[in-house]
Amino acid sequence: MIVSNSISKKYEKSHVLQHVGLQVNKGSIYGLLGSNGAGKTTLLKIIAGIVRPDDGEITVDGKGVFEDTEVKAAMFFLADSLYFFSQYTIKQMADFYRDTYPNWNQERFLKLQQLFQLDRKKKISQFSKGMQRQVAFWLALSTMPEYLILDEPFDGLDAVIRKKIKNLLVQDVAEREMTIIISSHNLREIEDICDYIGILHQGQLLLEKDIDDLKSDIHKVQVAFRQKPETEVWDNLDVLYKERRGSVILAIVRGKEEDIVSHLEQYQPVILDLLPLTLEEIFVYEMGDAGYAIENILV
């Protein structure tokens, strides 16, 4: 479990992170969303023990990360712009990781080659950008990390590869309870694999939610009444949004499904439908005033 405790970081005079407290449970896939400059990369670098926070602390399974090789050995950080030693082949790079990460799994490395179909003897710099990204994942997964930290990992990957890698990731999470933190500026890019979402805006964590909770907690209600209903119909509900389209009322309501249904049925509606919300819609309504912050990440 990764827990951050009111982390703050300043570059020069600008506050990049302010009192960020986040919690990533073991075996979950945590999506860190935020527009450019929100502080995602800095937060990930702090989690990976590259950058030291000015204030607050980060613990992984109760231990600090910075300069702790044992914790870092079980962690792999994949930066948004890749880095390989210049002129190194995949094999040489693999040798490097093998000597550096104690949990390196050579068997896995060889097995993954069949999946990626890349020549191990070839210099990494000669591969295309998308292929290099695959090499990075290949190497990263071969170190058998318990915590995988991915900064904008799907940039520049086509849909097929993206799917392939996502499958691999999910598989590792399922099989050996790997934990993933994945950052993105685009919700759609990661919503299919995340089970947890945190939104970072201007250095502050606006929201941190379990997606299942979110989905079960917020509902789109389509309802029509025979006669004009009394206004108190909505009084006991947590309504985030409401609009009337002819005789049909469309409302976004927070609360348990059964509660909402039983409440509305008291007023004998002609139509009562509960529709699923896309994650995107959930955020728009959930965030309310802060909605401006997430508009960018929903594009």
Partner: peptide, 15 residues
């Protein structure tokens, strides 16, 4: 070099 510095310091090797 930014990338290189991030990379080296993410490894499980002490500074």
């Amino acid at each position: 070099v930014k990338n290189a510095a991030d990379f080296i310091h993410s490894l499980p090797i002490t500074r």
